[in-house]
Amino acid sequence: MSDLLDIAGKTYSSRLLIGTGKYKDFEETRSAIEESGAQIVTVAIRRTNIGQNADEPNLLDFVSPDKYTILPNTAGCFNADDAVRTCKLARELLDGHDLVKLEVLGDQKTLYPNITHTLKAAQTLVDDGFKVMVYTNDDPIVAKELESMGCVAVMPLGSLIGSGLGILNPHNIHLILEEAEVPIIVDAGVGTASDAAIAMELGCDGVLLNSAVAHANKPVLMASAMRKAIEAGRESFLAGRMPRKAYAAASSPLDGVSR
């Protein structure tokens, strides 16, 4: 069965998007990403240490842009201007690659998106030709607005970044999905495999996660669990679950029992 995720005209067989932060080292990063089956991998853009050794390892030597679609993020940006500037640096860094993850944060305590600045940055980036995958809250009106602006994917939080609290408001995610015409990807909050499965069972097009794998006791094993959970959740969504009932309905015939 062909069931591909289409983002900005490019298709992916994996619906898991994975981050590269907080791993023990680049070897572990590479192993976890390989095991996850992810094809889209997020990175952050930061100042290069000046005075570093010429042979200091580089993330992109371990997670090659030839093998993965690299998704640079604007993590750490708290206003639209910084986020736009970071995207432009990323596009230069990645030789004109224009797919970006826009996130404009509100405060350090919650890392909740600042929607005013997110909308402003999204408009600027879309106008500049970027393909914008945008981190946002789980407000269906804002999600639709970002879609209307031309964002190629809308990525509502399940819960706070790095919290591992799962999908706290599945009803809102459902409202977003009902109106969506671009991929909806739950970004942030997934803590364990069942959270990822729940997101997919709701009908999300994908899940973006980082800490749930990087902070697991065994990151590579959790990467494998996430791959399976997302596949299972997707198939479950496509299969269509049975209705919930208040009372029992026997699976085995009730008559013909030997007495």
């Binding site: 590269t20 990063t29 997020t42 930061r46 580089n58 690299i70 640096l89 860094l93 980082n210």
Partner: peptide
């Protein structure tokens, strides 16, 4: 001058 590169991030 700003010089940047890619590092781990989510």
């Amino acid at each position: 001058v700003e010089i940047v590169h890619a590092i781990g991030g989510g």
